[in-house]
Design a binder for these strands. Structure first.
Length: 231
DNA sequence: GCGACAG
DNA sequence: ATCTTGTCGC
């Protein structure tokens, strides 16, 4: 798939924040997505190895709404940027871009294991990546970076607004009754309601979307070495 | 100065 | 994220 990196990653944390402020206005958060026209969804995840200083990114493509794996790609790259809350994309995007470029399936949407615009400068990894590709991106994180919210109802599908500095930047969604909720936010080229519906459609059985689960296990396999089973 | 802080 | 055994709970 086509990926257009808009800049390099050899920046200081200070420069990275300035770049986020410059790029954030380009995010489109009002584009509806018709689930009926979606054929393939991709999940992206990164596994890091401090010992070797390497990052292993994987992209797993699932058919929709069946959610069966149809393609898997992996890419390794050195970790040149430290983990700094709010600057995660500068650390993980290099390997993610490498893996995405090898994807051949015509993906209709990408779900990232990170935040979208639910970010201090409205440019979490899902949004940042969304500016590099032409397809819609969604952020589905396991924990909160910014924003206040009320605990959503205990039943599956229950959700509440994630509000930061007076703005609704995402939704706290209960994908399964009884489990802790996930934090869904717009990546790029999609609206919040569509993003939430997509995440729920991809998580019919577990807390995390099938896309995230498959990408996560594939990334761990790649890091451990036994990444023999990739289509 | 103190607390918070995606992965 | 990663380091790690057993263990509490549905």
């Amino acid at each position: 798939m086509r990926v257009e990196e808009l800049h390099g990653y050899r920046l200081s944390p200070r420069e990275a924040r300035e770049l986020q402020v410059e790029l954030a206005p380009r995010v489109e958060a009002d584009v509806p997505l018709d689930p009926g026209s979606l054929e393939y969804v991709a999940g992206v995840d990164v596994s890091t190895e401090a010992r070797s200083g390497m990052a292993y990114a994987t992209v797993v493509v699932l058919d929709f709404p069946g959610l069966e794996v149809v393609e898997e790609r992996g890419f390794a790259a050195p970790l040149d940027f430290p983990y700094v809350p709010g600057l995660l994309s500068f650390r993980e995007l290099p390997p993610v871009v490498g893996a995405l470029r090898e994807v051949e399936t015509p993906v209709g949407a990408i779900i990232c294991d990170a935040q979208g615009i639910a970010h201090p400068r409205r440019l979490g990894l899902a949004s940042h990546l969304g500016l590099f590709v032409e397809v819609p991106t969604v952020g589905c994180a396991k924990s909160r970076l910014v924003g206040d919210f009320e605990e959503p109802g205990r039943e599956k599908g229950s959700a509440t607004d994630l509000v930061d500095r007076g703005e609704v930047v995402g939704r706290v969604v209960r994908t399964r009754s009884g489990v802790s909720p996930v934090y869904v936010s717009v990546g790029n080229r999609i609206d919040l309601d569509s993003a939430v519906r997509l995440v729920l459609a991809c998580a019919p059985k577990y807390r995390l979307p099938e896309t995230t689960r498959r990408a996560h296990e594939a990334a761990n396999r790649l890091r451990r070495g036994d990444a023999g089973t990739l289509l």
